[in-house]
Design a protein around this nucleic acid. Structure first.
Length: 137
DNA sequence: GCCAACGTTGGC
DNA sequence: GCCAACGTTGGC
């Protein structure tokens, strides 16, 4: 099962907003970046996703999962853009901040650090496990 | 609010 | 196919 990380600006769509959606989840629309789209095409139902708050908070706040495979983005007529749906699984007891990630040598290769602007990115199993531990799971 | 990084667009 | 201009992202 692959692991991922997705970013959202909490003043637009926050972790709490995703939790409020329940099992229905939320269409991850609005991505207009080929690399990010390609990663979403690679996702499978049930893949685990870190939910990261950009701009405000700057921390990984919870775990979500893919609830629908990539499909056309309903917010555009442009057939190039596709997205998955995700739903909340559980919050991290202790959010892991960007500062924490940068201060951890084992996490220095995370795309969160190396590809700052990529909004959908893969996470290795090792990184996943470590962030979960740091987050109190 | 500013600005650096970086991806995309469009003229040539 | 190159590269300058432009727009967007996201940390600070």
């Amino acid at each position: 099962m692959a692991k991922w990380l997705m970013k959202s600006e909490p003043n637009k769509f926050s972790w709490d907003d995703l939790v409020a959606k329940g099992d229905v989840g939320e269409e991850w629309d609005g991505v207009r970046n080929y690399q990010a789209r390609n990663f979403m095409r690679d996702m499978a139902i049930g893949d685990q996703v870190f939910f990261y708050h950009s701009n405000i908070g700057l921390e990984i706040v919870g775990i979500a999962e893919v609830s629908a495979l990539a499909h056309p983005d309903s917010t555009t007529d442009d057939p190039r853009w596709e997205c998955v749906d995700i739903r909340a699984v559980k919050p991290l007891p202790t959010p892991v901040t960007l500062k924490d990630v940068k201060a951890t040598p084992e996490l220095s290769q995370m795309a969160l650090v190396t590809s700052m602007r990529l909004s959908v990115q893969p996470v290795t199993q090792e990184e996943w496990d470590l962030v979960c531990t740091m987050g109190g799971l």
